[in-house]
Each structure stands twice: as structure tokens, then as C-alpha cells.
Design a binder for these strands. Sequence first.
DNA 1: GCGGCGCTACTACCT
DNA 2: ACAGGTAGTAGCGCCGCG
Length: 784
Amino acid sequence: MELTFWLLDVTYGVVGNAPELRLFGITNNDKRVLVLDRSFRPYFYVLPSGDSSTVLANVKRKLEGRVLGVELVKRRLFGGEVDAIKVTATIPEKVRELREIAAEIPGVKDVLEADIRFSQRYLLDMGVKPSNWVVVDQCEEVKGNYQVDLVCLAKTRPRMIEEHKLPNFRILALDIEVYNPRGMPNPDRDPIIIISTMTKEDGIKMFVADDSKNDAKIIREFVDYLRKYDPDIIVGYNNNGFDWPYLVNRSSRVGVKLTISRMGNPPEPSVYGHWSVIGRANVDLYNFIEEMGEIKVKSLDRAAEFLGVMRRDERVLIPGHRIYEYWDDKSKRDLLLRYARDDVVSTYGLAEKLLPFAIQLSSISGLPLDQVGASSVGARVEWMIFYEAVKRGELAPNREERPYETYKGAVVLEPRPGLHEDIAVIDFSSMYPSIMMKYNVSPDTLVIGDCNDCYVAPENNYRFRKTPEGLYPGLLRVLVESRRKVRELMKNYPENSPDWVLLNERQRALKVMANAMYGYCGWLGARWYRREVAEAVTAWGRNLLKTVIEKARSLGLPIIYGDTDSLFVKNIGDKVDALINYINNELGFDVKVDKVYRRVLFTEAKKRYVGLTIDGEVDIVGFEAVRGDWAEVAKDVQENVAEIVLKTGDVGKAVAYVKSIIDKLKAFQFDIDDVIIWKTLDKSLNEYKVLTPHVAAAKQLIEAGYKVGKGDMIGYVIVKGGGAKLAYKVKPYILIKDIREIDVDYYIEKQVIPAAMRILEVLGVKESQLMEGKAGKSILDFFQ
DNA sequence: GCGGCGCTACTACCT
DNA sequence: ACAGGTAGTAGCGCCGCG
């Protein structure tokens, strides 16, 4: 039979002495299927130095009887033709020892592609990416003990087809609550008290322990339910870091089998720190929130609020360390149940918002849906390149340890300080990808030495062959072209309709991947790393901006500021048009007026400005107001000052406003949330060389029994008393009992005034004006 | 013993 | 565990100081 399915998960096993690929999918008529392929074997390459036939003979002699085949093949490496010896093994588990033996054979220069996971190797060679539709022309039904509607053995190789629609997934959100009377729960002693799930069909299910807190029963009920519901996708929030390891640990402790995969086995730890549930996609939504810079404090409730899933003031919030209190106190237990419910509903809601993008990332990168979130940006780009490389017969270089080296980046212009009226922002669209495509910049087109048909980078003179098209530019062209097509398709659907949303997520993912290519090429961890490639790209970028600046000058168009690929100029219609035409037509790069500011204010600092767009929106860039590590009260003041200044031009009004906030602080008229300073703990506590305030606060938290470590956000406030350093005056905000402990002078002097003055100083306001007297004086007082 | 100063550590931002 | 360029706060060590 012919079978068409959407590829959800892939794994392999060894049957007899042969590997068996297992492709789990969903058909277009809603059947869960498993396709087995026993026709593929693991292999790797050996690179000979010197005479390849001699080395081939050596390899054959040495590996005879241990491998299925040794053959000489033609491949490419960084664009150059090479002889390679392809060694085919019986089963994946043998590859490691074979590669070690092979590396020692005389005449062997290198062993390549011997570190590729077998299931990924298979997909690469088939040109099949997960989260896409796949056809197997001949599949023969077989018996098998799997939780699917159909198992078949592939008689032909799978092939990917282009089709954007998605199957009807069964999605299950999962969240557990644990009894934790001693701080951070420990699975050796602390039982699970609530397991909550949510699905579209069954709604919310809560498996709640009884007073004996015997969790064997609820785990068993949960397992039964999960198997009955049979989800394709399981989502959680930090489930890779908490729920799964805890559940696995607890269930083995209480003797319950977590037979939840489609092969009946428990979840197991896998690559990139993710937990795999065979035949299903286990997705940790926290991974995607981690990447969203706009969300500063990445707790589930805040993420859900930010994405419009659930408001924080409409849900139950319980501090993690007090969960047990809400369990023990029966009058509060109902609150705990509502809290658990809100969490699982939030998780399900987040999945609706985030899965469409995750699916597209998986489909484009070639990483399975359950891995793509946990993987790094570098890994996603690398797999995408790998697919393109295999298509071209280009061998993947090994990962190498490289010494840290830096290279020159973009230009940033000194801004013209002050308040400017009517400013246009001209932006290059995808400057670096465009440069890479235009000048064929790629690790495989780089020429060391003479070249008579090359593009030559400015400043550093790196040279790139004009033909054939390189790996990076070729891939970028595919991404750009696909994105153009997808955006074209979007026009056929009403905005925000399901089809439109799907395509929109796809075009977004295509853009994200294209824009990540430059960063990848300068990443020391990249297989296809070439410093010259990254250096050439930035050199061309600097050159481009410089050329545009010169042109603007020759047109008599005043420049206010510029950074990397943008230029802020006076909005003089014909001159701006002339500049844009010049860039588009004569330089051959795509630029557009990204936005026009009615007013925009710069200080002397780069990368910081506030502007009022012609649509009446206030943009704040770089300033404290958009930083996560300033107190809300200061950010708020700065934002309002900016708005007043930009909208009314009334500096006096802004000054009066700042004074009113200072007065409120002095009178303790504020909320604790307004004075919390959040900072990320970027290292483990013992790695810090200096005692910074947030480190001091973190130590206090540990003292108080909390578990904090690398990667955590520390929220602290500055309190009265203390000593010479600020670090002696900090206190974690959760330990604050009375708002009068707060040192309001600190907030006035070190937060509110600096934040306000940043904007006001350039308008001639003196700091003393914010301090003197009370607010509400005549506005005239504030002008010299 | 302490304030001033310059440097380093640290975080978070922009493109 | 995708890049470099940048601003800003706080800590720390050193200097001078009869």
C-alpha cells in the first residue's frame, strides 16, 4: 500500500543483527502509524592522505569481517573535490569502535560523520525532515506491539512532499505539584500530590492524592489516562527539567511502570537535555519562552500573561516553596487545586500559541519536534546546513575545539544629541544574508591565495569564488525564495484564519533561520566555521553603510544616527527617495523606510533613543525603561518622561511629574513590585569574583532554604541600613515583610533620578531641579 | 581609616 | 552552546594622606 503521513517522531532499534528505523506519523485520515525501514545501515567516511587506493586497501584489510562495506567515493570538503572511503557498519552501536580503529590506520587523515545519530543520518540521506508530510510508495502491513493504528514495513524509501497543512494533533498539557515541606522537593522523600492534564477533548483532569499522600495511585491513574487518550504531543512547562525526571524517579520508587510511550516504555533522557517519549513529541514550552527576550521573568504565570493566555490577576498564585502549606491546611487546599488548574490551563494555552512556530522550526531545521526547542540556535542552523550539504555531496567537517578569537563587527555612528523633528529610519532588509548571497560568501567558496574570478571583500580582501554557488548562499536563496512563496500564499487567506496563522509562523521561522546564518558562521562551535567568512560579511556591511552615508552627504541629507544596517536621516521626501533609489538600483540592496519619527531624542550614547512615530507610538530603545534590571518605578518614570517630552514638548511638566513620584516614594506610597530589581544569575554562585548585589541576594535565598543557581532570575530590593557596599543592603523581595524596610533614598537617587535625567539632561534640566521643593510649583520655575 | 580614581566584573541591551 | 558593539552600575584595589 502507499502511505502518506506527517512525520512526528523517529527512533530505531536493533532487530536480529540489523537496525530498524521506526517512523511514527499521523496520516491525513487521522490514523497513527508506524513505518519500519530495515533497509538502511550506518556508515561514516574515512579521509585518506596521499594515495587513496593504498589507504583503501589498508582500511579494507584492517576492517574486513567487521563491516558491511568499504568503498571509494567522490565527495567534496569545503568545496574542493576529495576521495573519501565510505565505511558501512552493521549496527549503529559498532560505529564508535570502528571509527577509533579507522583513525589509527596508516594513511588515514581524518574520520568524518562518525558522530551522527543514526536516526538523523537516515533522515539526512532520505532528504526527509520531521514535521513534514512523507510518502512511502510501498509499505507492507506487519504485526507489532505498538500503540498505533497501523504498523508497516517500508519496501521503498520515504520521500518528503511539499504540503503545509497540519494533521489534527491530540495535544496533552501536563503539570505536577509536589509536597515540599523542606524547600525544593526531593523525589527520595516527597510525593507528588497533584497531576493535572488538559486536552481539547477531555478538558482538565486532576489526579489528586488523598491525605496519605500515596502517589502510586495517582501515577497509575495518570498513566492509564494518558494511554487511553493517546496524545501525539505532550506539552509542559520545564517538564524536561522537572516533571519528567520527578515522575520517572517517583514511579520507580513506588513501583509503578510509566508505560506511556507508543512502545510502552517510560520517558528517557535524550539529546540537548530533553526527555523523549517514543512515538510522541514531548515539548517543553519553557524552551521557547527562554528565547523570548521580551519576557524578562520567565515563570509560567508571567509567560502566560505576556502571550495573552491568562492574566496574573485572574489566577491563583502560590509561591513554589509554600505549596505544601496549601496542602496541609485543608482550608487552603482548594486554592492549591485552583492553582494547579490555572497552571495546566496556562500550559495548554501556551502550547496553542507556541507549537505552530515550533512545528515550523522543526520542519525547516530538520530536527524532530521534541528536540527542536531544547536544541541551540547553532544546532538548528547546523542541521539545516547538513541537509543541504548531503544533497551536494559535501562532507560535514568535524566539530573542533578552537581558541577564542574575535573579529571586527558592525559600525555604530555617534548620534547627534538632542530632540529632532521628522526623522526617517532607512533600514536594509536582511543585510547580512543579502551580502552573503550577492558576493557568494561561504566557507566552501573562500579562496586562499590568488583568484581571478572572485568577489573581494573590502578592508581584509578575502576572496570568494563567483561560481558555483556556495553552501550558505544557496541555502539562503532557498530560504528567501520559500519565504516569498509563503507570503504570497498568505494572501489567499483572511488575516488570522488558521491557514494564515500557519503560513505566518512558517514565514517567521524561515526568516529567523536565514538571519541566524551569519551568527552561525562566526560561531566557534560551528562545523562549517571559517572566521574569514564572518569577517568578510561584516566588512562588506561596514562598507555598504559607509557608501550610503557618503551618498546621503552628497545629497545634502542630514544624518542623525546609524547602527549596522540602519540610518536615521532628516525626512526630506525627495532626498530620501533619491537615496533609497540609489541603494536599490545602483548598489543592488533592498532598503526601505522602516518608520518615520515625528520626534526622536538622542543623548550622547549610542544604541539608545526614544521616538514618537507618525502613528503616535512611543518607541524606547536601549534605555533603562526597556531593561529588565531596573526597578519598575524607575522604568515607569522614564517611560512617562519620554512620553511627556515627545508628545507635549513640555519639559516642566515632565519635571513636575518626576517630583511627584519622588514624593510618593518618600511617603512609601508604592507597591513592592515597583522596587524589585531583577537580575539573572549568569554563573554558579561560587564562580563569581565579586560580591554583586544580586549574588548577595541569591546567597540570602539559599540561606533561607531556597534553591537558586545558574540561570535563575534573582529579584531583590534595597533596604535601609547595611554598610559600605550595596551588596550589604540587599534583600530578596520574597523575604520582605514590611514595605518600610525599603531604602527609598536609594530608589530616588540611584534609580528614579538617573533614569529621568537620562532623558531630561539633554533638554537642559539640572538634577537639582528634581530635588528641590515639592512638586506642583509653577511650570515657569523649571526653565532657567 | 577613608575618599577619590581607574580598572574590572557583570548584566542587558541593539542590530 | 549564533555574532560584535555598546552603556551603565557596582565592586575592588591602589594611592595619597606627615
